[in-house]
Amino acid sequence: MEIGELKKKAKAIRIDIVKMIGTAGSGHPGGALSSADLMTVLYFDQLKHDPKDPWWKDRDRVIFSKGHSSALLYACLAESGYFPVEDLLTFRKLGSLLQGHPARNGLPGVEVSTGSLGQGLSVGVGMALGLRQSGKDSRVYVLLGDGECDEGQIWEAAMASGHYKLDNLCGILDYNRLQIDGFTEEVMNLEPLAQKWQDFGWEVINIDGHNCEEIISAYKKAKTVKGKPSLILAQTIKGKGVSYMENEAIWHGKAPKKEQMESAIKELEKDE
């Protein structure tokens, strides 16, 4: 997809996210908006998948280890054609497959249930090992949060990925520097973060997580890395695209009210 088209798609996805969470009256807008460009480029430019054949055996796998960004996952899936975009407004409602956090409940495109932080990377390691074992060249993409990296299991998984030289595994770390209780630096310092991943045997690719050109190059570079897993360390802005949400920890897990939703949509529609 052309850069201009990708940017339009990212905008549509951001609007979907705001509408879904606003309509549901609950959800996690901040981290969904900060990862939106990373996931838009993945789904619409880089991923080997077929929305008409969601469980195609040779597909690449995507895991939202930061499961609270479910609105973004559902928006990517719907905009890709996995299910109707109208279904997005059933998010978090009784009877909907669009659970508050992703559930492997038959919704096409959801590979595994997530929502409890720190486990998705390990699941990705298992998928990557299994795919390699069966001779498939499919890749596994795992979206990680920065606050999530406080979990010890992330580092267990990082160590195992390095040990098993999983070059079919690509982590995408949404480094927006905010978690529920505040700045990551204050809650639990992660730095030197790139160094940590390198020390665990990963190729680290530093990018601006809102620059589509840089995101594309990062995915392309990760595909060429041999003998080790890759981590795209993406500098992002929490709440990106909605000015009143940007860099505000409060919007981690809060839904906009009706007027706030409308002003957010207006701002996103206007933005070029």
């Binding site: 390990s122 390691v125 298992g126 267990e156």
Partner: peptide, 28 residues
């Protein structure tokens, strides 16, 4: 040996990895 996987002293990681391997078609 090709179907045996060692994960060191890290059981939580192993449990989630097992989920991933099963989703790739194996019976861990």
């Amino acid at each position: 040996p090709d179907r045996f996987f060692q994960f060191g002293v890290a059981e939580q990681n192993m449990m989630s990895i097992a989920a991933g391997m099963s989703l790739s078609g194996y019976i861990p």
